[in-house]
């Protein structure tokens, strides 16, 4: 069988690639439709629920970064720290210098990415538990920094009463109108846009050669470097992208809540970002989104248990790990990869 049809082998991968690109794009459109049309139609009147979805979208955006660091084989618990950095960059620039939120949003990501690169360069040499512990310390260090320099960050009092995003216009053309006080839909749409852009970029990255290089780092750094892959460079790139996501997400939350405190993002948040990735599964780009959705909805469903909410929630989480140690999406195999297609 192999001998007779050996010719199409060269063309096959490309045609496979093309058809397998359609499925994710379709899925992306489906998510977009569900988020931008279905949710507002169904829950539009319920401001509280709209807020839950806004948070869910933004939180999964931040978690995409954690997912990417998992892809290179590192357990990243610094995400909350870099989100805090992004939040403070926006808060300080908006409140002190009156810089537009629309500039601050990408800028916060850039600052976080830059700092992430500086810190990541040495720290990424550590692996496994060591990396997890040191990144946990980084999150804590960010909180302490916010506390220690009140001249800039106003310490424990936090920076409060941040203005809402103003109008975004280009050449006199209004692209996004100024956010109105109390209106929840603008934030809802903004979070959704971020989430979809974030997801789309992750998908492009993951399916590109860069994604393959990242995966190779997780599986075998030595082999990768023997092939001429600059392991240190790619690690830092992945970490910087991750920090960028954190910074942008942090800036979003600062603006959504209109305040920042040193406790806005802390160790527990880092843990949750990681949990979302796990619950959704580490095999798929969409994992963090699925994880955040499942976790946040179940958390809200437990709302009526009031003070027992967290206990039940974490108890369920432990139960989940016990029952499905490899994530919810682990039931599905990484698609498009027929295992052992040919066997003599």
């Amino acid at each position: 069988m192999q001998k007779t049809i050996s010719m199409p082998n060269v063309n096959l991968p490309q045609s496979v690639q093309r058809s397998s690109a359609l499925k994710p794009i379709g899925l992306g459109l489906l998510i977009a439709a569900a988020y931008f049309i279905a949710i507002p139609l169904v829950f539009g009147a319920n401001g509280y629920l709209l807020n839950v979805f806004t948070t869910m979208a933004a939180v999964s955006f931040i978690s995409f970064g954690v997912w990417l660091t998992f892809a290179i084989g590192r357990i990243n618990l610094a995400q909350a720290g870099f989100a805090l950095i992004g939040a403070y960059v926006t808060a300080i620039l908006v409140s002190r210098l009156g810089v537009s939120f629309w500039i601050c949003l990408p800028l916060s990501g850039a600052v976080a990415a830059l700092l992430g690169g500086l810190i990541g360069w040495p720290v990424l040499r550590l692996k496994g538990v060591y990396f997890a512990m040191i990144t946990l310390c980084i999150t804590e260090a960010c909180r302490l920094t916010a506390l220690s320099f009140p001249a800039l960050t106003r310490g424990a009092q936090g920076i409060v009463d941040l203005p809402l995003p103003g109008e975004l216009s280009l050449f006199g053309l209004t692209i996004i109108p100024a956010f109105e006080k109390g209106a929840r839909l603008p934030f809802f749409y903004l979070a959704g846009t971020l989430m979809l852009l974030g997801l789309g970029f992750m998908w492009l990255l993951d399916t590109s050669r860069v994604g393959a290089v990242f995966r190779s780092l997780r599986q075998n750094e030595d082999l990768a470097s023997s092939l001429g892959i600059n392991v240190a460079k790619y690690r830092v790139v992945a970490f910087m992208v991750s920090c960028f996501y954190a910074g942008v997400g942090g800036a979003f939350f600062a603006t959504l809540q209109q305040n920042v405190y040193p406790t806005t993002f802390q160790v527990l948040d880092s843990v949750y970002f990681m949990v979302y990735c796990f619950v959704g599964g580490l095999e798929f780009v969409i994992g963090p989104l699925v994880g955040a959705l499942v976790m946040m909805i179940s958390f809200e469903l437990l709302h009526e248990f009031q003070r027992y909410q967290t206990v039940i929630f974490s108890g369920l989480m432990i139960l989940c790990i016990l029952l499905m140690p490899n994530g919810i999406l682990s039931v599905v195999n990484r698609s498009g990869k027929p295992e052992e297609a040919t066997n003599a």
Partner: peptide, 9 residues
Amino acid sequence: LLAMGTAVF
């Protein structure tokens, strides 16, 4: 992760 979940619990 399990250890972290236990910590929160």
